[in-house]
Design a protein around this nucleic acid. Structure first.
Lengths: 367, 367
DNA sequence: CAACGCTACACAAAGGTTTGTGTGAATGGC
DNA sequence: GCCATTCACACAAACCTTTGTGTAGCGTTG
């Protein structure tokens, strides 16, 4: 209990129980009592366990790693942890890693190729067993190099080529938005497509465009503008759109934070929501439901993406083959597209939120 | 270059250059050429370096750790990485750690004592050299146990007792808010004080109360309400406040996200900002300036807190004594307290933001 | 020219595990 | 009462570094 010695070792426990470190190791590493009996008598087992417990023994991971050549370490690179979406995905990764006896290192790349490469080197030099990238560029060649070196990795959030990845089905998410906008009678939709190198924004945009086209609504190129996935980027992009005329009657910001920026731009111009312009975000961030005007958005399973990403990497490390995974999103309708009075049919999502329109439209099942 | 063998070792380089691993080690570990000459001839040095470079040699950290008994690993525990503030602080920590050749493990505790204890054990079993806690409970006894075991640690964001910590001077931050509210004529201030166990919210609240009292404005206990530091918590707390009458003419939410929740509650009740109620947040989150109504808030040096927290831990590990550090905050005035027309005197913060009132009032220097 | 001091290395141990193999003693079969 | 198992361990090597100490060969000095 009240130990202040650095750490107990097998040798210490061996001395104390009168056996050799190897026996201690085998006993302590046996999952069941039955399997431990292969290596020691019942009495010895009990004594070893008692001694280990009293010292709070925990194997030295560096020694274990040296011997077994496994570090139980995973490297994670994200564009930026400040970003709620990536932070949530990382939480899922870390949670699953801990459950499986792994630990993770996480760093920002800021979507900068140099930083990304540098961080990868640093992590590899730390002997991580595999990598998770949350910052894949849609058409970048960086990952090719990583793969060639034999490093196992999976992508989360953004997909790229056919590399193993866990993402939201962003194309479907975009479709849901397109269908919703059509259903509320919008015919002139502008889209904030996010960074041009991120599959997330590109797929969401394409999904919306496809759904709108099927409904006879065309989205001309000048209605699609790129920008950063944050409030400032959203505001800037929205200002470019709102300076054109005629004004669109709907804006799909492919990210909730960008949508918040759009709200600011709308207010500056005294445009009302949803009457003048309907606004849709993406990700159903914790903020979306609590904004002054609650935001219609697409819920993506961020936490689950992280968890499954780690599981997929573990499968990969084990030698299994894996298939890219796309999890279905859900549309969450709120007042930024349907004003509370107008929507009598919308069922409330949870009893506690009965005051607001919060209707969930599940993905239609297709992928 | 095109290697796919796991990793080069000293032995491989030694074989290749015809010396022993020990010589390779000494040469490679010598910072300067001059000091390397202590161990080998110039020719040997060059051959060793060339071989190491061609193999992309990087020392095995587990072997190094085993031998030197230093892991160059730091454990970080935060309430929740999803929280923008803690994510930003962690970015600072990780940045400084990388610069100093350390790597960090970070986990959420969700402010749950059991998770905190568990996470600490896990990190210690990973042989971290020190810990950084971002989730200290103001009057908790958990840290006492950690200190007794001889584990070095520093606190960030929240302080507790006299443990080494790097925080924002939250009391001063609260004062700035109190003084500002008085200066715009508000006399009935409600405060969302956040979690009752977090020094951050407590200090901010106390600072505001002190400044207001000095100006002759009393803040009665029922005007101070606790709740979670997020939008939902802010909305809930605001609703409690706004159900009372008379209504306050100002609300100080000790966190920007809570302030966003307050905005929703205000809108629900058709209350205007800043006319009916002036609203102030805390932290100057990236969102604050971009909200439909830009938020007056207190800028805290989150990134710097992280960086300095890590440096302080390094000092501690080196055996130095350290003093708790409180970094000064700055008030940022925006339209949630001063409408754009009303403020002709307010100077704009940056040229690019000239459209909005963005006046910065530096901390008055006192601590 | 003997003694000495460098130079440029080599040797060996240690750090804590895991794991393949070896072994004396007790047990069982006949 | 003898041989073959089985039990309950011990022994030793290997994983990769770092670091204290040893040493052969050479040049210098007086």
């Amino acid at each position: 209990m009240g130990r202040r010695t650095p750490h107990a070792t097998l040798q210490m426990i061996a001395d104390e129980t009168g056996v050799t470190p190897s026996t201690v190791s085998r006993v302590l590493n046996s999952a069941s009592e039955a399997s431990a009996r292969r290596w020691a008598s019942m009495g010895t087992i009990l004594r070893i366990r008692a001694a280990a417990a009293s010292h709070g023994y925990t194997p030295n991971p560096q020694a274990v790693g040296l011997r077994t050549r496994r570090s139980r370490l995973i490297g994670v690179i994200v564009p930026r942890l400040q970003d709620y979406v990536l932070a949530t995905i990382y939480e899922g990764i870390d949670e699953a890693a801990t459950e499986n006896g792994f630990a993770t290192f996480v760093t920002n790349s800021l979507d900068d190729p140099r930083k990304r490469a540098q961080a990868t080197e640093t992590l590899l030099s730390r002997r991580v067993e595999g990598m998770i990238f949350g910052d894949a560029q849609f058409d970048g060649e960086f990952l090719e190099g990583v793969a060639e070196r034999g490093t196992k990795f999976v992508l989360v959030s953004r997909r790229s080529r056919d590399y193993p990845s866990v993402t939201c089905d962003d194309h479907l998410g975009g479709r849901l938005v397109g269908e919703h906008l059509v259903s509320i009678g919008r015919r002139d939709v502008a889209i904030l497509a996010g960074e041009p190198y991120a599959a997330t924004g590109l797929d969401r945009t394409q999904g919306a465009v496809d759904a709108l086209r099927e409904a006879g609504v065309d989205v001309p190129p000048h209605r699609i503008v790129h920008g950063h996935f944050d409030a400032q980027g959203g505001r800037a992009a929205a200002e470019r759109i709102l300076d054109s005329h005629p004004l669109p009657d709907a804006i799909f910001a492919t990210n909730d934070f960008a949508a918040i920026g759009v709200m600011g731009a709308l207010r500056d111009r005294k445009l009302s929501m949803p009457d003048d312009v309907a606004l849709v975000g993406y990700n159903d961030t914790a903020l979306a439901a609590e904004l002054p005007t609650p935001l219609t958005t697409v819920r993506s399973p961020m936490h689950e993406i992280g968890r499954l990403g780690l599981r997929m990497l573990l499968d990969l490390l084990q030698g299994d083959d894996v298939e890219p995974l796309r999890l279905p999103p859900t549309l969450v309708v709120r007042e930024s597209t349907v004003s509370s009075e107008a929507s009598s049919e919308a069922s409330s999502e949870t009893p506690s939120e009965a005051a607001r329109v919060d209707a969930v439209h599940p993905g239609s099942g297709r992928t």
